[in-house]
């Protein structure tokens, strides 16, 4: 029995008096592909942002690759993590954003090589060779010298995926990566992610409104509502045979809105 790669224990996150996450606990096993679904405001994006250290936590513990994310030991006591500790922990995690967040002043190639060169000391030539492999994989090798502004949304998102992969994180977070795309561009991004899921043993957490994709992609689906897990299980169970009333009504609404399941 291997240990979980992510361990979330009694996590609380409040914005002012509003509790977004209220005593949340779950584990993720290495290599697992997890889909987080639920109505907006249910806290699923907040979980990814907390794992990427973009958001602080109010209470609880998170363990990543066997190490505390927001806490560290000093003189045998547990204290809040400092910037150096966070920096170390972030090297395990990569993230792809809804709005791509590419660096507009850098070329596609530079977007991908910047971090490996700066944070890992990878020699430029090696970083560029690796970036070209990744661009090949996402089907954009011919765009290496383009600026992000010259790309379509789907192309931008594929570059963003390549940028995150270049650091070889053990955990990848996908935050509604197709929500900002025109419908006809969604497919090309999902194809890349499907291949990624099939070909790597990376642990992946996916927040999405694409139920059909979640069904295909995930080993396990977590349905969130009001900062808590209402129901979880294999996609077949959640999508075809949900037990909880909340899950059923959410899926009914999604189908009524024209989404594929």
């Amino acid at each position: 029995m291997t240990d979980p790669i992510i361990r979330i224990d009694n996590l609380v996150k409040s914005f002012g008096t509003f509790k977004v996450l209220d005593g949340l606990s779950f584990d993720v096993m290495p290599g697992e592909k997890l889909a987080l679904i639920g109505p907006s405001g249910s806290g699923k994006t907040t979980i990814l942002r907390i794992l990427m250290t973009l958001e602080s936590i109010s209470d609880g513990h998170i363990e990543i690759c066997g190490d505390q994310l927001y806490h560290m030991q000093r003189n045998g006591r547990e204290v809040p993590a400092d910037e150096a500790h966070l920096h170390k922990m972030r090297s395990h995690i990569g993230m792809v954003f809804q709005h791509f967040n590419l660096f507009p002043h850098k070329s596609v190639l530079e977007n991908i090589t910047l971090a490996p060169i700066l944070t890992k000391g990878t020699p430029r030539a090696k970083a560029e060779a690796r970036a070209m492999e990744l661009l090949e994989m996402v089907g954009l090798a011919d765009k290496a010298d383009a600026r992000p502004a010259q790309l379509s949304g789907g192309q931008k998102q594929r570059v963003a995926i390549a940028r995150a992969l270049a650091l070889q994180p053990r955990i990848m977070l996908f935050d509604e990566v197709t929500s900002a795309l025109d419908p006809e561009l969604v497919e090309e991004v999902l194809l890349v992610m499907k291949r990624l899921a099939a070909e790597t043993d990376m642990t992946m957490l996916l927040v999405t409104h694409e139920m059909g994709f979640a069904h295909e992609f995930a080993d396990r689906v977590l349905f969130f509502d009001k900062g808590r897990i209402v129901e979880q299980g294999p996609p077949e169970q959640i999508f075809s045979n949900p037990r909880e009333e909340r899950t059923q009504s959410f899926l009914r609404k999604i189908i009524a809105a024209g989404h594929r399941v």
């Binding site: 990427m52 250290t53 973009l54 910037e83 920096h87 972030r90 090297s91 995690i93 990569g94 993230m95 954003f97 709005h99 967040n101 590419l102 660096f103 910047l114 971090a115 700066l118 944070t119 940028r163 995150a164 650091l167």
Partner: peptide, 16 residues
């Protein structure tokens, strides 16, 4: 702000 967040996600230091 999303530029700052992208920097954190690719683990740049504050100075970088």
């Amino acid at each position: 702000r999303d530029q700052y967040e992208a920097c954190i996600a690719v683990n740049l230091t504050r100075f970088q």
